[in-house]
Design a protein around this nucleic acid. Structure first.
Lengths: 206, 206
DNA sequence: CCCCTTCCGTACGCTACCGTATGGTTGTCC
DNA sequence: GGACAACCATACGGTAGCGTACGGAAGGGG
């Protein structure tokens, strides 16, 4: 029963998986061969077989994170930039608004699953992290810009709103980490706050 | 001539000063006894005389940073929460707007002097950093809330706007670090962007 | 069944930092 | 101008991670 005690023979995938977990808990410094080997109940011999060196491990881990945000479209932010091609162009404005609201709701809500992302943001300077982070960031901002364009903003204004909205998300994540009680946790207050943010972000220019 | 070659006899102040510089360049990991000793042209013997251990050094460095943002009111963000007591209460609304604009202008402008702050934000989890960061954050948000209150927002709305504004600042700083070219560098585009943000933040609720 | 590839454990040397011990230097005050 | 405190260098041992070397186990194809 439960052969979990001796589950030898690890794969590169196992390593990056555990690395992502470690990344969320201990930040980038925790993504290292020897600590991970300990976590996996193995030794560095295994690690240095699957990865040429530590940078290779980091690169693979970051890459897998990016994959998880490109392939499997998570409800976190990406949601679904590509709608079905030629459907309902009629009420798409409200659709865009709903999607934006849903997006904010998810993003300004939970703080747990953002651990990995926060860790990567904290290591934004790292040469192996920066490119991926830049790509993901740009993709998200573009998606937001498209959303605001659907809402009737002209391209320039939409781009600005998108930047502002994403900036809001980033700042919110950071704030939730530094002063958790400065951000509404849940319930009605959070709903009100969300509506206020949404209203501010989508307010027509004066 | 130039006795700079042998300027022995360091002080605790010298150490925290160099530590702040190192913090801006290499992040919190760079705030360590031995690397700093090398930077200062001294040895660890000096360091461990001025500081009990590394944590002591970190605490002193963070504390000094907080001082610099409390005592000497820098143009960065704090600007001047306490105006002169009983002057011009007449056109204070426009004064508040001007102050907010100036604040945004400074804050959304340069990216250089924020190195230390970004390093601290990246290390927000660290037990010796978190409390200070929380204090400074709260102080700034409170100041912003007062500003929005002066602009005519009721307390609850002002608090929300303040949080949103500060969140914008945090996100902007983060964005400027990860995708520097996603943020308008200077010139007219930056002025327009600034106006747009300001307009959005101060827009009347619908 | 054997062999060869895949995977892993162990042992080693290296670097960077921590923290301690101790003696020596430098400054200052009387 | 000596004494005491402040300051610093040197040397030491300890820990954590890197990366290499090498031998051995696991397991599937011939």
């Amino acid at each position: 029963m439960a052969e979990g005690t001796r589950r030898r023979r690890l794969s590169r995938h196992d390593w990056t998986g555990e690395a992502l977990r470690a990344l969320g808990e201990g930040g980038l410094p925790a993504v290292a061969i020897e600590p991970l080997a300990a976590r996996l109940g193995a030794t560095k011999g295994s690690g240095y077989w699957h990865f040429r060196n530590r940078d290779d491990l980091i690169a693979a881990t970051v890459e897998r994170w990016e994959q998880a945000h490109t392939d499997a479209v998570i409800a976190t932010v990406d949601l679904a930039p590509s709608h079905s091609t030629a459907t309902a162009t009629a009420h798409r404005a409200t659709g865009a608004l709903d999607r934006l609201r849903e997006l904010l709701r998810v993003v300004l809500g939970r703080t747990g699953p953002f651990a990995v992302e926060l860790a990567l943001l904290a290591a934004a300077d790292h040469p192996l992290v920066a490119p991926t982070l830049a790509r993901v960031t740009r993709r998200r901002i573009d998606y937001l810009a498209a959303l605001f364009a659907e809402l009737g903003f002209d391209p320039v204004a939409a781009a600005r709103r998108a930047r502002l909205a994403y900036t809001t998300y980033l700042g919110h994540a950071q704030l939730a980490r530094t002063v958790p009680d400065a951000v509404p946790a849940g319930g009605q207050e959070r709903r009100d706050y969300l509506d206020a943010v949404l209203a501010t972000l989508t307010a027509a220019p004066r």
